[in-house]
Nucleic acid binder design. Structure first.
Length: 825
RNA sequence: GCGGCGGUGGCGGAACGGUAGACGCGGGGCCCUCAAAAGGCCCUGUCCGAAAGGGUGUGUGGGUUCGAAUCCCACCCGCCGCACCA
């Protein structure tokens, strides 16, 4: 017999050439196709920087398994690939080296393409896109203008987060908890600047409610809910009589209104200086505000910090009782939440209590605990109870009831109304950077901000020499480009020089894949109907808030504008866990990076892909282990060798594969194992349990090895071909090779195998015999045996007798097909 | 503090309320070999025992059940997200 040696590189390049040449994974749009038989499987598109890392390998190995499984089930599968090519890293690289971002991005994209091919990912390359190409951002700009025309994109001056290092503004979501820039780690400052915003807050309620309609991991949904931060309460108006100004506040506790003893405004509140002006506090207030504004959010956000603030020397009227209560400015009140001003109820709020103690302000209890908590007379008291010290008609009411009654009363009096508040802020999308899609707006002295006409799109990025940010967009230096004519009046105009946040680019790319080469529109509605929404989206949990929220928002906004007929872009989401090494995230600084290229070089793509799926549940973090990789490599080697030897013994692979239920002995046992594996792998694939699916194929192969000498060649042929067929979604090259050798066919053209019921059924099984719930023996039982027969079998088992002897059987549990449990005393 | 997820051998991890530890790694023994590599076979939670077998064992303590890693209650620990959000 020939001495066979598994050679992954030869096998992998051979099959990759076939797939390349025949464009095997290409799908066409077919208008009469049944949507239910189409599947859109999508992994988050990579940001092309340097080379792909292990996380990419995991993501695409995972998605590819799902894509292949769906194809083998007979579905038409859309499985495209693209690149999120705009962004700061390429631009920072350009600042450092002078290399055009387009060139460094192109080099990185080429590296990603090479590696995706070398991994054998089943991509429809005809739909490939990159967000920095004018043919793509043409439509990013078009979407922006659609939003602009609908009033969903607007410009306003606002206190914005500014990164002094990157010299650009950031979205709230791009500032981390320490108040640092997510990209470069520098402390972020607050600046008042004119910026472009997208009105995502209009969609807060729908973004929240529709979470219930999608099949997403609960932790991602929770993160989105937290981020949207909905709270119910009331907006209540407090009037400053001295200046004749109304100050609405948002409160979730209108039931405590009678306990409001002072009023606090955020340092950023535009009226703070006006209020203090001319009072003896003016100077002190000015100093306090200056200090507060220079503090980081983290400093201000520290709950342990003693409360600070300054009196404004004014009062407002508490609308429920007409009391004049003093006004303060304090940094514990945030401008971005609610109205930037609060009513303070020290008796029932910890922060207000701390402030009241520090400033010696009155504390009035308006809720008294009842029942078990009646003993609790400590303040502040945030629990429920009955109203006291309020008004006769409210006193004595349970506070939850009083809340509604008070809001109703305020409404009637015109002093307030029920209200819902959200933490979610509008999305700041303008960036003072070069490497992004230009915002297609022209400013005109007489017409204002004018959209660039559709037939002039795309507004292409001009060539510039200096990418260094100087507090304004580098695009401003391209004078020829900036100076243009107003599309509206034909007079002199200046182009918007800011570019869009790259999250705008990635908020709609999944739509473009459906119709990627359309030169006349972003997409054709019919093309979208064939594929959208995405059946299965796959990516890292780090995008739980930003990307996934923005994409949902785009979908809803575009649907409202009549461009889409669905509300949610991603029906199902799967978030993969990280790949760690030595217990930590891989990073260059730690020096624990494992490059996919080096693994593929050493053991081949099939082993790399299989290992990363085998190591554990894909949604959990996985520790990289070189010896674990070797184990998987041994498994694939054994499979391939045994298949090659068996193929040689069979001679011709053209005969049909047979699994005859009439087989006997070891042949029957091996066939059964094969059918068991079919059942197991199919089931596991449906629930993304790739690790146990691969383990099942390993078990099948172990049986093949063990029974190699004793079974018929045709039995072995069937078992090994089945192993190859089942392994195809995970290790496509070696699986295709094995299957071709044994079955003479292309495995991806063969339907997914189905288990033979007759072979799954056994005429005998191992009956577990328990006494008092403890395993005491196992005996062979016939499949159809009655409960009485099973009980008798169990009683006859020697080790059962030993434990039943001399005792009384008080209960018998018989689970046919499983076990008998005898309860004795 | 609030919310989510998790805790099983030396390690990664399996287990519809029904044989805990599949599969893989690591470890041990053996075969093949002049030798090694590669490959193959067997053993491998723990304690008692020569073995048969028995005890014990899924973070801790209770509970439900004939039977609990799994369900319920309380707690401990770890990870992730949010957090002066009015």
């Amino acid at each position: 017999m020939t001495d066979y040696q598994y050679d992954p590189h030869a096998i992998e390049s051979r099959w990759q050439e076939v797939w390349e040449r025949e464009q095997t994974w290409r799908v066409t749009n077919s208008h009469d196709a049944d949507r239910a038989n189409n599947a859109y499987i999508l992994e988050m598109l990579p940001y092309p920087s340097g080379e792909p890392h292990i996380g990419h390998l995991k993501c695409y190995a995972l998605g590819d398994a799902i894509a292949h499984f769906n194809r083998r089930l007979g579905r038409r599968v859309l499985h495209p690939m693209g690149y999120d090519a705009f962004g700061l890293p390429a631009e920072n690289h350009a600042i450092k080296t002078g290399e055009h971002p387009r060139d460094s991005t192109a080099a990185s994209i080429a590296s990603f393409q090479r590696q995706f091919r070398s991994w054998g990912i089943s991509i429809d390359w005809s739909r490939e896109l990159a967000t920095h190409e004018p043919s793509y951002y043409h439509w990013t700009q078009w979407i922006f203008l659609e939003l602009f025309k609908a009033g969903l994109a607007y410009r306003k001056e606002a206190a914005v987060k500014w990164c002094p290092h990157d010299q650009t503004v950031l979205a709230n979501e791009q500032v981390d908890a320490d108040g640092r820039c997510e990209r470069c780690g520098h402390l972020v400052e607050v600046r008042q600047l004119e910026q472009w915003f997208l009105r995502i807050t209009d969609y807060a309620e729908r973004l929240l409610g529709d979470l219930d309609t999608i099949d997403w991991p609960s932790n991602v949904k929770t993160m989105q809910r937290n981020w949207i931060g909905r709270s119910e309460g009331a907006e209540v108006t407090f009037r400053c009589e001295q200046l004749g100004i109304d100050y609405p506040v948002f409160t979730t506790r209108p039931d405590t209104l009678f306990g409001a003893t002072f009023f606090v405004m955020a340092p950023e509140h535009p009226d703070v200086m006006r209020l203090a002006e001319g009072t003896e506090h003016e100077h002190e207030v000015r100093e306090y505000v200056n200090v507060a504004l220079n503090e980081t959010n983290q400093e201000r956000g520290n709950a342990e910090k003693p409360k600070t603030g300054v009196s404004l020397g004014r009062t407002v009227t508490n609308p429920v009782n007409g009391e004049q209560i003093p006004m303060y400015v304090a940094d514990y009140v945030l401008m971005e939440y609610g109205t930037g001003a609060i009513m303070a109820v020290p008796a029932h709020d910890e922060r207000d209590y701390a402030f009241a103690r520090a400033f010696d302000l009155p504390i009035r209890r308006v809720i008294a605990p009842t029942g078990e908590e009646a003993e609790d007379d400590a303040l502040p008291y945030a629990g429920d109870g009955v109203l006291v010290n309020s008004r006769e008609d409210f006193d004595g009411l349970p506070n939850r009831e009083a809340l509604g009654a008070i809001v109703h009363w305020l409404d009637v009096e015109g002093k307030g109304h029920a209200s819902v508040n959200y933490k979610l802020r509008d999305w700041l999308v303008s960036r003072q950077r070069y490497w992004g899609a230009p915002i297609p707006i022209v400013y005109c002295e007489s017409c204002g901000a004018v959209p660039v006409p559709e037939d002039e799109l795309p507004v292409e990025l001009p060539e510039i020499d200096d990418y260094t940010p100087k507090g304004r967009s580098p695009l401003a230096a391209a004078e020829d480009w900036v100076n243009t004519t107003c599309p509206s009046c034909g007079g002199a105009g200046r182009r918007e020089t800011d570019t869009m946040d790259t999250f705008v680019d990635s908020s709609w790319y999944f739509l473009r894949y459906c119709d990627p080469t359309n030169a006349h529109a972003a997409w054709d509605a019919q093309a979208l109907r064939e594929w959208m929404p995405v059946d299965q989206y796959i990516g890292g949990v780090e995008h739980a808030i930003l990307h996934l929220m923005y994409a949902r928002f785009f979908c809803k906004a575009l649907a409202d504008l009549g461009h889409l007929d669905f509300q949610e872009p991603f029906k199902a989401l799967f978030t993969q866990g990280m790949v760690t090494k030595d217990g930590a995230k891989m990073s260059k600084s730690r020096g624990n990076v494992v490059s996919p290229a080096s693994i593929v070089e050493r053991v081949g793509a099939d082993t790399a892909r299989c290992y990363i799926l085998f190591v554990g549940p894909p949604d959990q973090d996985a520790e990289w282990s070189d010896s674990g990789v070797e184990g998987v490599h041994r498994f694939l080697s054994r499979l391939w060798r045994l298949a090659a030897e068996t193929a040689e013994a069979v001679g011709s692979a053209s005969a049909p594969l047979v699994s005859d239920a009439g087989a006997q002995g070891d042949d029957l046992a091996l066939l059964r194992k094969a059918h068991w594996a079919i059942e197991k792998v199919s089931d596991d694939l449906r629930r993304f349990a790739f690790n146990t699916a691969i383990a099942a194929v390993m078990e099948l192969l172990n049986d093949c090895s063990r029974l190699r000498e004793t079974v018929e060649t045709q039995t072995m042929r069937f078992a090994l071909a089945t192993a190859g067929s089942l392994l195809f979604p995970f290790a496509p090259h070696v699986a295709a090779d094995v299957y071709e050798r044994l079955a003479g066919e292309r495995v991806w053209e063969a339907p997914w195998p189905s288990a033979d019921e007759e072979l799954l059924e056994r005429d005998e099984y191992e009956l577990v015999c328990q006494v008092n719930g403890k395993l005491r023996d196992r005996v062979q039982a016939a499949t159809g045996a009655s409960a009485d027969e099973l009980k008798a079998l169990c009683l006859a088992a020697p080790n059962v007798q030993a434990h039943v002897e001399g005792k009384q059987i008080v209960k018998e549990i018989v689970v046919p097909g499983k076990l008998v449990n005898l309860v004795v005393r």
